[in-house]
Design a binder for these strands. Structure first.
Lengths: 95, 95
DNA sequence: CAAGTATTTGGCTATTCGGTAAAATAGCCA
DNA sequence: TGGCTATTTTACCGAATAGCCAAATACTTG
């Protein structure tokens, strides 16, 4: 594989990989509806808060979410809602 | 997370996860253009053929590709070309 | 500054993943 | 059948990932 091509797919795969986890998909779908703080996400997901925080780090590194501080709370939001558009296509796959 | 909801996201994440690897993205994009045999994919990717075969297994399990035998050759094809439609959105992410 | 709340980070363990080489399988043809 | 080609499967190893707990950090309020 050419270096140029490889770099392109490596970058793209990094984002897709970040989306490829049930908890992170739930988080993304939740953020699609509205900006949400970490503690709300913990209640929604049910995992330890440090686990949630680590998932958010993965999503942040991928550029999928961003945060805004308001006092003690960090409000996360989806940077690019279109990333969830193709889930309909995936749902249609027979497996 | 509710069991029902969880199962849904687990299934969806499985497909996305299968897409989240540079080599597999290259394969999918190649198959988008035309049906291709494993040896052609090996030449394209440059990895060991058993590695390619494993990647194809991952894609098959996810339901993203299917194969058709013609003599010694197995021709792989994309089952649902729309799965690559959202890459444009991802490419637009600032990271 | 001290205490309290929200979130992140570090450290640990168990599990999964990616890659390679060697062996196994599947189909072709003499 | 036996040899040949294409592909998959198995076994193995090192690296990456997910989850939890405990400690650290960021900010607010008294």
């Amino acid at each position: 594989m050419k270096t140029r091509t490889k770099d392109y797919y490596v970058a793209q795969a990094a984002v897709i990989k970040a989306m490829g986890h049930p908890t992170r998909l739930l988080i993304l779908n939740s953020l699609k509806k509205k900006e949400t703080c970490v503690c709300e996400l913990r209640d929604l997901v049910g995992d330890d808060i440090s686990t949630i925080s680590k998932h958010l780090l993965v999503l942040r590194k991928a550029g999928l979410v961003a945060s805004r501080r308001e006092g003690n709370w960090l409000h996360y939001r989806l940077t690019c809602p279109c990333v969830l558009d193709f889930t309909g296509c995936i749902a249609g796959l027979k497996r």
